[in-house]
């Protein structure tokens, strides 16, 4: 029981490490962005799972009843984070499009190779 109570954090860690692995090991820029998004969603899961109370219900108040509500504060934070996340992702994708126009590729290695050729 001591260990089983922590499973939500482990799910979060595995997902986060998936995203982390993509970001550091793949050279493709779109794939890096997908990895960043997986990373981001894992953090969302961490926050939301912290706010959950066993036997609780969604924080929409019901009049005249004694109910346990889950913690609304992480929900608000994550709501904001999701929308900021899509905004930054779209900005990153726009940058990828520009990089593709300038270099003709979205592979990190090839971009580095081209920049070095230019500087020589």
């Amino acid at each position: 029981m001591q260990i089983l109570g922590l499973y939500n954090y482990w799910i979060f860690i595995v997902l986060m490490m998936c995203g982390f692995y993509v970001v550091i090991s793949r050279g493709n820029l779109v794939k890096k962005l997908v990895g960043l998004n997986i990373f981001q969603t894992s953090v969302f899961i961490l926050y939301i799972s912290m706010g959950k109370i066993t036997g609780g219900t969604a924080p929409i108040l019901i009049a005249g009843k004694d109910v346990v509500y889950s913690n609304p504060v992480p929900h608000v934070l994550i709501l904001t984070a999701i929308v900021v996340g899509i905004a930054t992702t779209s900005l990153g994708l726009a940058l990828v499009v520009r990089i593709h126009e300038a270099y003709g590729t979205i592979e990190e290695d090839e971009i580095h190779a081209q920049s070095e050729e230019e500087s020589l």
Binding site: G51, S70, P74, H75, I82, V83, I86
Partner: peptide, 23 residues
């Protein structure tokens, strides 16, 4: 499942909808 209906709503419309279209 974790009682965050507002967040689920946003994630479904943003993550599964708009983000996929942008990508």
């Amino acid at each position: 499942v974790m009682d965050a209906v507002d967040v689920a709503f946003t994630e479904a419309s943003v993550g599964a909808g708009v983000a996929t279209v942008f990508m």
